[in-house]
Design a protein around this nucleic acid. Structure first.
Lengths: 136, 136
DNA sequence: ATGCGACTTCAAGTCGGCTTGAAGTCAAGA
DNA sequence: TCTTGACTTCAAGCCGACTTGAAGTCGCAT
């Protein structure tokens, strides 16, 4: 049975973040002793899952959904579905990132004499290669 | 000489965005006629540059810096420096993204019977492979 | 009994890149 | 003349993931 401060220092999360996760429904409502949260060791697994999902790029609300579904069906089935969606998102981001890279490389090779020349040159580039202006 | 509305419809930017860019110092203070902004065609080059830099992943304040430096030194030199920094950032993001991908793939292969098992399994994974918990 | 440190709640602040809304101005057309 | 529509300014709102601050509570050691 440990306090929020101990959980914080052991997990690297800030106490405020732990409270926030609880408020968001990512962590179960903690038991209280004298008004203060007390935790048993199972909290570490729950936090580990959250950290892992965050590291995988899930938003907090997605993590809440994942947690709910993983509990109500078989973990393997639920994870599979979420992973598929996330993988697609990641592929998409990889494409955007490689576009960014190409543009940066092109800019690094700029030989324009003035900024306005750049504007003209890349106005054409944007039109021709359909460098989508709004990346997101 | 065109109004902000025309510039907006020709560039795809919203009028509010154009005003915002001006307020942020990305676009020069527009000339006024009867209190209203009027633009000549040079605005298109400037907007093209901004869109390009955005597509390259520069933030608005970075773009402001770029614009300043590109004007004060030779464009090629200035761009080169900024591009180098950005390329490094992109490489970094690519690494983070590929880490996310590996984690998602691992999650998709989860064979745990319960969520708590996942917690234990990945608590180990996090410790061993140093899947950095805070991705950013 | 009082001071301390760790906790509590709740509201508000942060960052970026805009958008939205309210209230007002301006020139042109019916 | 009066309305319309496009513009103006300024303040505030939005999203996500927290953090920060104020004010209060708890139990322990001095």
């Amino acid at each position: 049975m440990s306090t929020i401060g101990e959980i914080a220092s052991r997990t690297g999360l800030r106490a405020s973040a732990i409270r926030y996760y609880e408020a968001q429904g990512l962590l179960p409502t903690a038991a209280r002793q004298g008004g203060k949260r007390v935790y048993d060791s199972s909290i570490f697994q729950r936090i580990a899952i959250i950290n892992l999902a965050k590291a995988a790029g899930f938003s907090l609300s997605e993590i809440r959904d994942v947690l709910t579904k993983v509990r109500s069906s078989q973990p393997r089935t639920a994870w599979k579905g979420f992973a598929k969606v996330k993988r697609a998102e990641i592929e998409h981001e990889l494409e955007r990132l490689s576009l960014r890279k190409r543009i940066v490389t092109a800019l690094g090779r700029c030989r324009c004499a003035s900024l306005d020349d750049c504007g003209r040159a890349f106005a054409d580039a944007l039109a021709v290669n359909s460098f989508t202006p709004r990346l997101k």
